[in-house]
């Protein structure tokens, strides 16, 4: 589903994508900045939230700072006929933060199912990986885990800037 943005929506996105104002009435602050009534700001944000254009208004932690130093991108080769069913099951595991189907690049890259796992210790992450492997069972035709060694850049989405 695609959503047609109004000119005001774009202004609102530009004004909010990096930060929400840290003042007692943040939506009033945005309204003053954009020179519109506060109801227009609140209604448009609520509309975008209701339609999934905004996933949520929320804090994004630096997971390294919270102690999650072991971050594995687990990648799995599963049959294309099973990937949707298995992806939904893997995505439902409580420790998986993202789960996607992505294209293979044969012969170099045979993996079509990606699931991100995070832990404060290597043992925790190893147990999570074993749990995914057990869930996939015979449909696990091969997997690897790519641990991140460094954040080279993290700015988040920047639209219309």
């Amino acid at each position: 589903m695609q959503f047609i943005l109004t000119a005001f929506d774009r202004e609102l996105i530009r004004a909010t994508q990096k930060a929400l104002p840290l003042t007692p009435q943040p939506y009033h602050a945005l309204a003053a900045q954009l020179n519109v009534p506060v109801l227009q700001v609140m209604e448009r944000l609520q509309f975008m939230l209701d339609h999934g254009v905004i996933r949520r208004i929320a804090a994004v932690p630096n997971h390294y700072a919270l102690g999650y130093k072991h971050n594995g991108m687990t990648v799995w080769n599963v049959p294309d006929t099973e990937v949707d069913s298995l992806g939904a099951q893997v995505g439902a595991l409580p420790f998986v933060t993202h789960c996607y189907r992505r294209p293979r690049h044969l012969p170099l890259w045979e993996y079509n199912l990606f699931a991100m796992v995070h832990g404060k210790t290597q043992q925790v992450v190893d147990a999570q990986i074993a749990e995914i492997a057990a869930l996939l069972g015979e449909f696990n035709l091969g997997h690897e885990v790519l641990f991140s060694t460094k954040i080279l850049k993290k700015t988040g989405l920047q639209i219309g800037s």
């Binding site: 695609q2 996105i13 909010t16 208004i57 994004v60 639209i159």
Partner: peptide
């Protein structure tokens, strides 16, 4: 406290999380 968590980098952002594909991007 929220200001401090952002300044010290414990939080990388506090903002609406936009869904890129639904924005047409």
């Amino acid at each position: 406290r929220l200001t401090h968590l952002l300044e010290t980098g414990v939080l990388s952002r506090f903002a609406p999380m936009y869904h890129a594909e639904r924005l047409g991007g």
